[in-house]
Design a protein around this nucleic acid. Structure first.
Lengths: 341, 341
DNA sequence: ATTAGCACTCGAGATGGTTGAGTGCTAAAG
DNA sequence: CTTTAGCACTCAACCATCTCGAGTGCTAAT
């Protein structure tokens, strides 16, 4: 059953009031705040309807009402007018993640931080996937007897390294040669492809030098696997201040979940399609520790290709109309910043 | 004024009881628990003395007594018999940070984790200082027009990299030549020395290639500076469960302080001298957010040289007799593991 | 020096009353 | 048929009060 104009207006007003001060909204207050010439009794009737529809709930018999996640969902989908990003915020964003920082890792960090700072919630950035990076350079260094340091560099300047133990000591010349061979054979090709090729090439060989290549391949695999998990998070502790989560039991779970990242990453990777801001309100995420929280995320892209997702985690009761453009803007600026690095 | 035998015994018993169950200990219970043939009244007299001396304090008039940080200090210094590390724990430690992991970073992580797991508190490892590492290898790669990736490798296999923007495009050959020059001139020398030398060498020059070297030098400086701060921490959230810190206000501060690391690192670096386990009990650390906590730390060393510190952060009321050998043992095993990598 | 006895203190928890915000329902008014 | 006023009712929050039990400090007897 669709809501009529008045009900929508009241719902909107109620949610806005609740977002503003966090306490349940009663009929009298809502009647006043909504600006309609309507008595509290009428408002009560409407509220009862809204509760029947699942948009509102009463924490207890005489405590006014608060929105459910369904209510918030309707609010953001149908009632919310997103305000444009404030010039100050925009300025701050540009300043912090603007184009002058060359290092990818640093830009990502800056974005995470600024998200957390501006929202006073937890900010996150899912790091760019490296799967389709190409291999720029490989180096093998003899660190010590029977220890070789392998270094991988991608075209975007990601560097990853790993210590490999060998059976026999290998001379610098041999290693140099191996590296040359590696660079010539596999350089300039996508990482994923390199690994697959290596897997084929090394199928049966058992030479000592091939053991190095095999280890190198494993390093490459680790790089890919590792970034299944990689996500920057900042300001988790801001969540400690949220009165709605103060019951320490849930909070622990939430913080641990955020820390583990695994499920979170999974959730977010699901929202990489499309290039719009996306919201998970309360239980919508289907992820229990987040059921009291909302996640606002937006993918960021470079040259039309989505590289990752960023956003914030906060209470369901958050100022969506400001958070949404902020996350959106950050995603755009990050994409822009990365396109230059 | 020195404590007589009985007073010491009672103090020990009281602290042990309090550590075991966390509630203030009253005279009756203490008289029973201490195993002495002594009445609660007598115990009360002794307790009053101990309170006068500053070892105990009453949370309120009728609530038994709990140890002060002075009491704990006396306890660990004079009364505590450290039990040897349990075989199970030892086994677990060996398993987790034993010698089979080649990668330094991974070993350090494993140590941090296992500390946190076994103690149910926050575990930390201060990473080895790189100042006296020697420079093993430098590479300059042209990633793109006017962008050079500099890679530093130390003799221990630390790898650090940085993107450098240049004014003009530089050919692969030029960069190769620069790297060769760099490696020949500065390779094999301690990082610190390299930087100082570079500072002198680059004093007045303004060549484009020297700009690269200068940036490389800054990278080296960053490496040194960065590890002023580097510290691994795991399990901070376990601190959320401590009832004694449950007052969220302090807890926030504590978690933030742990996160910031700066002061913590400072505190710990002060305890790098000596090779013994060291305790900071409550306010002893002189660091306000830690004033309800104790820090148990031990330096770890390789070939007689102290590389860093590790330990745990927990409530003052922790089972020192087990924690101390655990931290100690972890430090030894970590040292051993690192000596082989 | 130790102990028993006793009055006293204080927090924790239960009890109960009051207040005020808010509700649902009903009946009257528009 | 919608809106509104009125009213009885509910319930959390607050407060005061009470009891309880654990624990103390002091004193006098052992």
């Amino acid at each position: 059953m669709a809501l009529d104009e008045r009900a929508r207006h009241l719902l909107k007003s109620l949610i806005e009031q609740h977002i503003a001060n966090g306490i349940p909204v009663g009929s009298r207050q809502l009647a006043k705040g909504a600006g309609l010439k309507i008595s509290p009794a009428t408002v009560r009737n409407v509220m009862a309807d809204l509760e029947d529809e699942g948009y509102l709930i009463s924490p207890h018999t005489s405590a006014g009402r608060i929105p459910t996640h369904v209510g918030y969902r309707f609010f953001v989908d149908a009632l919310l007018r997103v305000v444009p990003l404030s010039p100050q915020s925009h300025h701050l964003l540009v300043q912090r993640i603007g184009h002058h920082i060359p290092d990818t890792e640093q830009v990502l960090h800056a974005a995470t931080e600024v998200l957390s700072e501006l929202t006073h919630m937890a900010g996150f950035v899912r790091v760019p996937r490296r799967a389709n990076r190409t291999l720029r350079h490989v180096d093998f260094l003899a660190l010590r007897e029977k220890e070789v340091l392998a270094i991988f560099v991608t075209d975007k300047g990601d560097v990853e390294n790993r210590l490999i133990r060998t059976e026999h000591a290998l001379s610098a010349a041999e290693l140099h040669q191996a590296a040359n061979f590696f660079n010539e054979s596999y350089g300039g090709r996508p990482l994923q492809e390199v690994i697959q090729q290596l897997q084929r090439d090394l199928q049966q060989s058992r030479h000592e030098m091939d053991r190095i290549l095999r280890s190198a391949m494993e390093l490459g695999e680790e790089m890919l696997e590792e970034d299944q998990q990689r996500m920057l998070i900042e300001g988790e502790f801001q969540l400690l201040d949220l009165p709605e989560l103060a019951g320490s039991e849930r909070l622990r779970e939430l913080l641990n979940a955020v820390r583990q990242k695994r499920d979170l990453v999974h959730l977010l990777d699901g929202s990489m399609r499309g290039s719009e801001v996306r919201l998970f309100i309360g239980e919508e995420s289907g992820f229990a520790p987040l059921s009291d929280c909302s996640v606002v995320s937006a993918p960021y892209e470079v040259d039309g290709e989505v590289l990752g997702v960023l956003g914030v985690i906060g209470p369901m009761r958050m100022p969506y109309q400001q958070i949404i453009p902020l996350v959106d803007g950050t995603a755009h600026l990050l994409g822009r910043a990365l396109s230059q690095s």
